[in-house]
Nucleic acid binder design. Structure first.
Lengths: 194, 194
DNA sequence: AGTAAATGTTAATCTAGATTAACATTATTT
DNA sequence: AAATAATGTTAATCTAGATTAACATTTACT
C-alpha cells in the first residue's frame, strides 16, 4: 500500500519520527472506489477521513427542490470528506461521490483519538488542516457575495486549471452557483472578448 | 477582571483543573472598546483572539467598489476575531468593528503556543472551536446557494432573534447579501402575509 | 456501426434582486 | 427646540442570471 502521499502531506505541517510514521501507517486503510460510488451520503456520520491518492470526487448537497449544489471538488493530495461531520461526528449535510475511479487512504474516527494520544502532534496537524479549510470557506463566502458569476468563473479557472479539464461543465456551473446555460453564455462571452 | 464567562465557555468543551484555570487566567487581558472602534483591520495580522464579555461587533469585508459585506456579528460569549488570521498569522481579509461599546478578553498569539504546551487540552479546545466555525461557514455557503433572500432572512431571525433587535436593519441586509431597500421590501411582504 | 444517454449550446422570455431617487422617521448633537 | 446625521420606506426602472425549450455534439453501450 502506498501511504507516501499522505505522509509527505502531513510532514509539510508537522514532523513525524520514523516510529510515529510506522504507527500512523498501521492505522490507515487503502481503498478503491469506482466512478459513481459514494464515499459519504447526506445524513450519515462521516466516520472515516479520506485522503485522495488518485481520482476525483465532488462534495455536494441536494436541496429541497432536488437541485444539486457542489461545495468542492477533490483530487490527488486533497481531503475527500466532510471534515465537519468527521470531527464533530454529527450527520453530514453533504454527499461525497466519485466522478472518476478513485483510490484513497482512510483513517477511521475510532482510531483518531488513539492516534492523537500516541502522537499528540497530530492533534495540531488536524487543527491546522481544519483552519485552512475554514479560511478557504470564508473566502468562498466573500467571493459569492461580492463577485459576478463571470469573475468567479475566472478565479476558478485560475485556481484549479487542472480540475476544469477533468469534470463536465455542468458541474463547474453547479460549483459556481449558476445554471449550465448561463456558464455556457459566460464562456462564449469570454471567447468573443479576445 | 471577570474571566468567568470565558472559563465557563471553555469548560463546556474541555475540563480545566483549578491550577490550569489560574495559569490560563494569568495570560489573558481584559479590554474595553468604544462603539465605532476597530478591533482588527483588513490587511493586519490578527495577533489577539477576542472573546466578548459584553457588547456587539461586526466582522466585514470591503470590496473593490467600496461596498461593505458583513460576514458575522458577535455578541456576549462569542469570538470577535478573524480566527483564520489568528491561527495562521496571515493578514486578515476582514475588519472587526464595535457596533456597541464592547468589553472583551484577549489572548495574545505570542502566549497561545505557551498555553498549548502548558495545557495541551487547549490545543484540542481550539481545534473544536475552529471546527464549529468551519461547519457554520459551510452551512452559510449552502444557504446562500440554495435559498431566497426572504428565506435567509427568516432563518436569521430564527437563529439570532436577540441580535436583530440590537443592530440597524441595513447591517442585517449586508449580512444577508441584499440591499437595505430589498430587505425593506421583504419585511413589508412578510407583514402583509399574516 | 448504430443507438441511447450524457453533455453542451443558443435564443426567447421571465424574475429576484439592484439601482436610483425622493421622501419619512428616528437619533444625536448643539 | 432646532438642526443634522443616521436610518428606514416606497416606487420606477434596470439587469444578472434563471427557466424553458429546441437542437447539437460527444461519449458510452449493445
Amino acid at each position: 500500500m502506498n501511504s507516501q502521499p499522505l505522509l509527505s502531506y502531513i510532514n509539510k505541517i508537522i514532523t513525524l519520527t520514523e516510529e510515529e510514521e510506522t504507527y500512523f501507517t498501521s492505522k490507515i486503510v487503502y481503498r478503491k472506489y469506482l466512478k459513481g460510488q459514494y464515499i459519504l451520503q447526506q445524513g450519515d456520520v462521516n466516520n472515516k477521513i479520506c485522503f485522495i491518492i488518485s481520482g476525483c470526487v465532488k462534495m455536494f448537497y441536494v436541496d429541497d427542490l432536488g437541485q444539486e449544489h457542489i461545495l468542492m471538488f477533490g483530487v490527488e493530495n486533497w481531503w475527500a470528506s466532510d471534515l465537519g461531520s468527521y470531527i464533530s461526528q454529527a450527520p453530514s449535510d453533504f454527499n461525497v461521490q466519485c466522478i472518476e475511479d478513485t483510490a484513497l487512504i482512510q483513517v477511521a474516527y475510532n482510531d483518531i483519538e488513539d492516534l492523537y494520544s500516541k502522537i499528540p502532534k497530530l492533534e495540531r496537524c488536524f487543527r491546522i488542516i481544519i483552519e485552512k479549510a475554514y479560511v478557504a470557506s470564508q473566502k468562498r463566502i466573500v467571493r459569492n457575495f461580492s463577485m459576478s458569476a463571470k469573475d468567479r468563473y475566472l478565479i476558478f479557472k485560475e485556481n484549479y486549471p487542472e480540475i476544469e479539464q477533468r469534470i463536465p461543465q455542468y458541474m463547474v456551473a453547479s460549483y459556481l452557483g449558476v445554471t449550465k446555460e448561463f456558464l455556457s453564455k459566460i464562456k462564449s462571452q469570454i471567447a468573443t472578448e479576445q
